[in-house]
């Protein structure tokens, strides 16, 4: 159990590639923090810096009250779950779980107790005598989790642990990891590029882009109030529509946009904020042509083309509309649902 404090962490690889720049982050005890971002954004590097597998070029990293910058991975009291599980192929499941305890000089009886406890918790008790190659992907994933659990470390580090599983198993393991983490109350740092995984698992979400933190907050914070165009585009699926303010001004009455600051030259509208209901007082009204209708069961995605804007605008409805492709449709958007950004800086302006 510990807090993790990152103070101005930087990583520059030999050869000059700046992977992580000035990351400041305070992780509370027992908190589940998810690092999310596109590939190459530095999220894995940051995690490996916390683990001690990458050196820290600049800044301070504290786990609990200790500055751990110069400590070996083993001395940091953390456990890591790897993307490829990194199970020792020549050892049985029992020995895989026990390896870290043996190296730390635990008594045999204590090792036995902890391993069986973890195995029971993860329902891998009957596999203790097997080798990793005799297990399915999901079982291997559990063993990897078990190896982290038995050590009872100060923090768990997860490096895209679910990306090698099929979609169904991934959802199941996602829930299990989250429940386990809540139950144990162990501080966790979780890296993923899957924004759905990130949204559902995180206490707080950290969006990284180009080695820099774009925004930190609860998943709903980031969703309803993205601070940058990057976060706006990254969180939420389908992605937020970005419409030039000039285009909107030409389309709707001036007073409907009057509340936005003058600098707001890019307006974001989430696909689900378009409504087929009759417009209320002060709502924006937009009509366009339906190019493509994608029914997806519980919801449907409508690819719209508005005159004066050369990109498709995606609209998400919670029903399948009785509309033909090529037909004109009218939507209303509440004023409060507009996300105004400054195009040049990419920052939110209101």
């Amino acid at each position: 159990m510990a807090t993790i404090t990152m103070d101005n962490l930087c990583k520059v690889y030999t050869g000059g590639v700046q992977a992580v720049t000035g990351v400041n982050l305070d992780i509370a005890d027992g908190e589940m923090i998810v690092l999310v971002g596109p590939s190459g954004c530095g999220k894995s590097t940051l995690l490996r810096m916390v683990a001690g597998l990458e050196t820290i070029t600049d800044g301070t990293l504290k786990i609990g009250e200790r500055v751990v910058n110069a400590l070996e991975p083993a001395e940091r009291d953390i456990a890591m779950v790897f993307q490829n599980y990194a199970l020792y192929p020549h050892m049985t499941v029992f020995n895989n779980l026990a390896y870290g305890l043996k190296n730390r000089g635990f008594k045999k009886a204590e090792i036995d107790r902890r391993v069986r406890e973890a195995a029971q918790m993860l329902e891998i008790g009957q596999f203790l005598d097997r080798k990793p190659r005799q297990l399915s992907g999901g079982q291997r994933q559990r063993v990897a989790m078990g190896r982290a659990l038995v050590r009872e470390p100060a923090a768990f580090l997860f490096d895209e642990p679910l990306s090698n599983l099929d979609a169904k198993l991934r959802v199941q393991m996602r829930v299990e990891i989250r429940q386990l983490q809540r139950r144990l109350g162990t501080t966790s740092l979780y890296v993923t590029h899957d924004q759905l995984e990130a949204m559902t698992m995180a206490d707080r979400l950290v969006v990284l882009n180009g080695g820099v933190i774009e925004q930190v907050g609860t998943p709903m914070d980031l969703y309803s109030h993205p601070e940058t165009t990057f976060v706006a585009g990254f969180i939420g699926s389908p992605a937020m529509n970005m419409l030039p303010a000039d285009f909107l001004r030409a389309k709707v009455a001036a007073e409907e946009l009057a509340h936005l600051p003058a600098k707001a030259d890019l307006i974001g509208i989430r696909p689900e904020d378009f409504s087929t209901a009759p417009p209320g007082e002060g709502d924006l009204v937009l009509s366009g042509q339906l190019l493509l209708l994608e029914p997806a069961g519980a919801e449907s995605h409508l690819h719209m083309r508005f005159e004066g804007f050369d990109k498709n605008v995606v609209v998400r409805l919670s029903h399948v509309p009785a509309a033909e492709e090529g037909q004109d449709l009218t939507f209303s958007v509440r004023r409060a649902a507009l996300h105004p950004f400054d195009l040049e800086s990419g920052q939110r302006v209101a």
Partner: peptide
């Protein structure tokens, strides 16, 4: 795989021990 060595390092095995308990058996 490099991650095996890293996992062993996190599991508290010294360089020497990593070689004899992980690398050498895998080379057998």
């Amino acid at each position: 795989p490099h991650s095996l060595i890293e996992a062993a390092a996190i599991d508290g095995a010294s360089r020497f021990k990593r070689f004899w308990t992980i690398v050498f058996p895998l080379l057998s």
